[in-house]
Computed example of a mutant assay.
Amino acid sequence: MGTEYDIPDVELEYAARLYRKAHTAGLVAGRSANGFATACLLVAVRKSPLQLPVSLRELEEVARATEDQIKTARGVLEVRMEIEIPPLEPQDLIPKVTSELNIGVPVEQCAKTLLRAFRADDETDCHGFSPRTLTGAALHAAYDTVDCDNRPTLSQLSDTLRVSASTISQRKRYLLQYTGICE
């Protein structure tokens, strides 16, 4: 799984140590070892100072465990081992998407600025918003602000992020109120 997403050795070693700790504590017995391996890798990726843009969905695609097995292992790590698994941040996905779609630096910077403003706004309740959807919405809104050629289509954004185009459009309206700060 780690090689599929170019996860550095330090994070892979952290995941392995966490797995051994869970195994030694008897938490893996009777549960999916592959589910625990995936959940431990998720913890390592999310706690990495490198802000790796690997989502749970991506790990599930290459894991040898079912979604339920991974969810169970994740719950055990969070509850029994008291490990906090931070959420994936939308801004962590932006470099990956801009690279894949050949999006220019001005649009990338504007999208990051929009996400920071959105997050800093106390009036905004973004609970339940997918990080992937917010990333797509920020990039889509940034193109409305920054004069730039080679704008990817909404369909290209949604395919790259693996989220619905209509959801990106819906979330974009939350970010458009901040576009003045990108000018």
Rank of each mutant, 00 (worst) to 15 (best):
P8C: 12
E11A: 11
A16V: 12
R17S: 08
L18H: 00
Y19W: 07
Y19V: 05
G26L: 05
L27Y: 06
V28P: 00
G30R: 05
G30A: 07
R31E: 11
A33D: 15
A33C: 15
N34V: 13
G35E: 02
F36K: 00
A37D: 13
T38S: 09
C40P: 04
C40H: 01
L41H: 02
V45S: 03
P49G: 10
L50W: 13
Q51T: 11
V54A: 05
S55P: 04
E58P: 04
A63L: 05
I70Y: 01
I70P: 00
K71I: 01
T72R: 13
A73K: 02
A73S: 12
V79E: 13
E82P: 03
E84M: 14
I85F: 09
L88D: 00
E89P: 03
Q91P: 04
P95V: 12
T98P: 02
S99Y: 15
S99C: 15
L101V: 06
N102G: 11
C110M: 07
K112C: 09
L114Y: 00
L114G: 01
R116S: 13
A120L: 15
D125P: 07
C126N: 13
H127Y: 14
R132T: 10
T133Q: 07
L134M: 08
G136D: 06
A138V: 12
H140P: 03
A142P: 00
A142W: 00
D147W: 14
C148N: 09
R151L: 11
P152H: 04
T153A: 14
T153E: 11
L154F: 10
L154V: 08
S155M: 13
S158V: 00
D159F: 04
V163L: 04
T167I: 06
S169H: 08
S169G: 14
Q170W: 06
Q170P: 07
R171M: 05
K172L: 09
L175T: 07
L176I: 15
Q177C: 06
G180H: 14
I181F: 08
